[in-house]
């Protein structure tokens, strides 16, 4: 199967196989006018299988969102058909308005204008907790 290379845009590589569609929704890529290719189950020496997303436009990607989703994803910036930059991600220390607190006793459940803020409290277990009530926001990655 052949997918054309892009001239200027972004390639999200090393996405865990099966997660590309969720990431597509998570990053609101459906709102873009440009071409977006989702390539699933690509053979990978490192991962066995992986997904790739190619975006045929230079858009702003929220790296915190991406890092929270899966810090193993690599972000390749393509200019003039060549890779100009490769970004590695890390788990963000804080995420704002990416996940909502599910604790019905949390102040964010009644005060709609408050930002939903989660902070990384356990990097090893990838646990984020609500900045208001300390409830777990689930483990990062695969919890979308």
């Amino acid at each position: 199967m052949v997918v054309d290379k892009i001239e200027n845009g972004i390639v999200l590589d090393h996405i865990k196989a099966g997660n590309a569609m969720a990431l597509y929704r998570y990053l609101n890529l459906d709102e873009l006018d440009c071409s977006v290719a989702i390539i699933k189950n690509v053979k990978s020496r490192k991962m066995g299988k992986k997904d790739i997303i190619k975006i045929d436009s230079m858009i702003d990607i929220n790296l915190d969102v991406l890092g929270y989703f899966d810090e193993n994803i690599t972000v390749n910036i393509i200019r003039g058909g060549e890779r100009a930059e490769k970004k590695h991600l890390s788990l963000p220390r804080e995420i704002v308005n990416i996940v909502k607190c599910k604790n019905p006793r949390c102040i964010t459940s009644t005060e709609q204008e408050l930002d939903h803020i989660f902070r990384l409290t356990d990097p090893q277990r990838r646990v984020y907790r609500c900045a208001y009530c300390d409830s777990a926001g689930g483990n990062a990655g695969g919890n979308v």
């Binding site: 006793r105 949390c106 102040i107 964010t108 005060e111 609500c130 900045a131 208001y132 300390d134 409830s135």
Partner: peptide, 23 residues
């Protein structure tokens, strides 16, 4: 009664906030 209400309060208060119990 809501958990974390003093955190929300502290973000806008110009004086010290003491949490006297949040949920």
């Amino acid at each position: 009664p809501k958990e974390g209400a003093p955190v929300a309060a502290s973000a806008v208060s110009g004086v010290p906030i003491i949490n006297a119990g949040d949920g």
